[in-house]
Amino acid sequence: MSSIDYLRPAPVSGHIFRRRRKSGDRWMAKWRDAAGQHQRVLGKAWRGRGRPTPGHLTKQGAQRELDAILADARRGQLVAPTRPVGGATFADAAAEWLRYIEHDRKRRPSTVRDYRIVVDNVLVAALGEAELEQLTSAHIDAFRARLVAEGRLSARTINKYLALIHGILKRAQRVYGLSANAAAGVERQPARRSGEFDVLSAEEVEALARAAASPQDAALFATAAYAGLRLGELRALRWRDVEFDKRLVHVRRSYVERDEGVPKSGRVRSVPMIDQVARALDELSRRERFTGDRDLVFCNDAGEHFEDSALRRRFYAARERAGLKPIRIHDLRHTFGTLAVQVFPLSDVKAYMGHAEIATTMIYVHHVPQVDAAQRLSAALSSEAAATPAQIAEQVSAS
């Protein structure tokens, strides 16, 4: 492409289409200009004959609205347009929010997919027909109460749904000029982390590795338990990320839902490579194939990303052969967390595990029992009781 091509204005094009709604069909405009792709509710579709009533459009009227939009866009007079809120529904706002997080915010495809499933199957199904101007906190609270009454979802899941609604309406405030966010006034469900999860001891991790179906699975189980990598990060690990001389494993990528991208935290991190991991990976690096810098450490027979569901089945089988309690493969990461907090400062553990918040790391502190706490406290009290008044006064003045 020549430098002249970069100076040419981006082509402006668009079309109208009719979106069916129980409350009345809408004429929609969709167009692309230099700022990207846009969509706007033009107005309610006129179904009758003769002159349409105010707020309604015929097909010809909708086309004229689009022609005016395209003309402004070609003149550069249509920058970040705010769409009229009149007639727009929650479904319209949800579609715009999904477009925003995918194309503007560049969220991972797996994240967008998960959001889209919830939005389409739950939120739009319940609130999609509601017009934004008519949507109130009472409507959203009724939706929350209905989910609670059904008893199928946890409080955390219900709160996640409410957070998504809040994000959709927050975007609608910017795009449609919506005056208030109705989700802001809805109370969340009380939810607390129990702090309970299962981990393995070092002996149990070794038993799991011995029961693995292959040396690669054994090395993967050891790396998960002693380096704390997520399954997606293990699937994307390459030999160039393993530095034996510096005793480090670099977590640069993650492979989830057939898409390789940055780790969940959005940041590259490095984890200490302890002897157990170094021995397992060193043995694996001596295999006949797939040992180059760009090759995957854990791969299938073709050297490509292995299937996660197949690995889970092999993990469960190895767990049974080893006679271990029914833990999940993600609990191997928890195993690393409980070991790490006993050795490293919390800030280091947070970095090693790729946590966004220190509160997440704190769950491992609460999980690790302080077996000597009673003994240490008793010793401190005994020491204080044996001290003379003069010694106590001296300690107080020193403090």
Rank of each mutant, 00 (worst) to 15 (best):
E204Y: 02
R267Q: 15
A212Y: 06
A302E: 14
I274V: 15
S254D: 01
R286S: 07
L220S: 02
G232N: 08
T223E: 05
R267H: 12
L220K: 00
V271P: 04
R238S: 11
R235L: 05
V271Y: 08
D301A: 14
D295E: 06
A222G: 02
C299S: 15
A218I: 03
L231C: 04
F298W: 02
H250W: 14
V256K: 05
R252A: 14
V205G: 03
A225R: 03
D275Q: 13
A225N: 06
R230D: 00
R253F: 13
I274W: 10
F244R: 10
R279Y: 05
D259V: 13
A224C: 12
E233Y: 12
L284N: 01
E260T: 14
P272N: 07
E206A: 15
G228C: 07
P272M: 09
E243D: 15
A236M: 06
E243P: 00
V271W: 09
L234V: 14
D245W: 09
D301H: 13
E206Q: 13
V205H: 02
R258Q: 13
R238Q: 14
K246E: 15
V251P: 04
E260K: 09
G232R: 13
D293R: 15
R289F: 13
V256E: 01
Y255F: 14
A211G: 03
A209F: 06
S265M: 08
L220H: 02
D217F: 13
F298Q: 01
G232W: 07
E283D: 12
V268I: 12
A222Q: 12
L234T: 04
D245Q: 13
E260M: 15
V242C: 08
V251Q: 09
D241Q: 00
E288V: 11
R286H: 12
A278R: 14
P263I: 01
V297K: 04
V271G: 09
R240K: 14
G266D: 03
L208E: 00
A213S: 13
L296A: 10
S214F: 05
E283N: 15
D241L: 01
E257V: 15
E260P: 06
L237Y: 03
Y255Q: 11
F221P: 00
A218F: 01
I274D: 05
D245H: 12
V256G: 02
V249K: 02
E233H: 11
A218E: 00
T291A: 08
A219C: 04
R289Y: 07
L229W: 02
A222P: 00
A280W: 06
E233L: 11
Y255T: 02
L229P: 01
L281V: 00
A225S: 11
D217W: 15
T223P: 02
A218V: 10
I274M: 12
A207H: 05
P263H: 08
E288I: 11
S254P: 03
G261M: 13
D259I: 03
R252I: 00
F298T: 01
V271D: 11
V271T: 10
R240H: 09
S265F: 06
N300Q: 04
P263V: 04
G261Q: 10
C299L: 06
L237S: 12
N300H: 03
V297T: 05
G261T: 02
R294T: 08
A207V: 06
W239K: 05
D293E: 14
V268M: 08
D241E: 03
G292K: 12
N300I: 09
L234Y: 02
E260S: 10
A207N: 01
R252E: 15
D245L: 11
A227G: 09
T291R: 12
A211W: 10
